[in-house]
Design a protein around this nucleic acid. Sequence first.
DNA 1: CGGGTTTGACCAGCGC
DNA 2: GCGCTGGTCAAACCCG
Length: 185
Amino acid sequence: MENYTILFPPQASSSSSSSSYSSHLSHLPSNMLSNNQAFGSLHHNNSRGLLGLQEDVKVSSFEAHGAPQMESFGGAENEAKTGKKKSEKKIRRPRFAFQTRSQVDILDDGYRWRKYGQKAVKNNKFPRSYYRCTHQGCNVKKQVQRLSKDEGIVVTTYEGMHTHPIEKSNENFEHILNQMQIYSS
DNA sequence: CGGGTTTGACCAGCGC
DNA sequence: GCGCTGGTCAAACCCG
C-alpha cells in the first residue's frame, strides 16, 4: 500500500547529486512556512536533519510550481470519513511522508495531535502510531513510524490539510529548516 | 475532571 | 472464500 514517490532520498548529503536536491529543499519549506497552515512535521529538540520527503500522488506539483498548493490535494479530503465509508468509492487521500533523523518519534510541528491508534507493521520491528489533529473540524491525520533498518530515521506521513492556523510558534520549524539546508548542502 | 494515551477488537481491502 | 495486513474505534486508563 505504501506507494510513495521519494522526492528527497535520505542519502542526500552523501549522494553525488545532492546539489539537485538542495535546490528543492531550499524552496519547498519556505513555501510551507509561508502557507503557515500547510502542514509540518518537524520537532525541536533532537532532530538532526530532514532526510526525505515522499508523496504518493501529485509529485509534479512540487516540481512544477515550487509552492505546494494544498488546495490541489485537498479535494477529496473531507469526504473520506473516519475510515468508515458506506457507499463511497475508495477515495485515496494524498499523503506526504517526511523522513527525519530523530531520537524521538513525536515531532513538534505546532499542531496538537491526539493519538488514536498504534499498529505493528510488517517487516518493521517498530510500531506505527496514528495521530489526528485535535482541532475541531480539522481532519488531518498523520502516521509516525520508525524504520527498522535504520532506527534513527522517523517517517512521518501527513494526510489532509489543516483548516486552521498553526497553534504554536513555528520557530521550531524554522530551526529544522535551517538544519535541513545544512544537511542537504 | 478534561484531555490525551493505550490497547484489543473490529472492519475493509487486497492477494492468493 | 480465506487469511493477512493496515487503519480505526472505543473503553479503560493515565495524568496534570
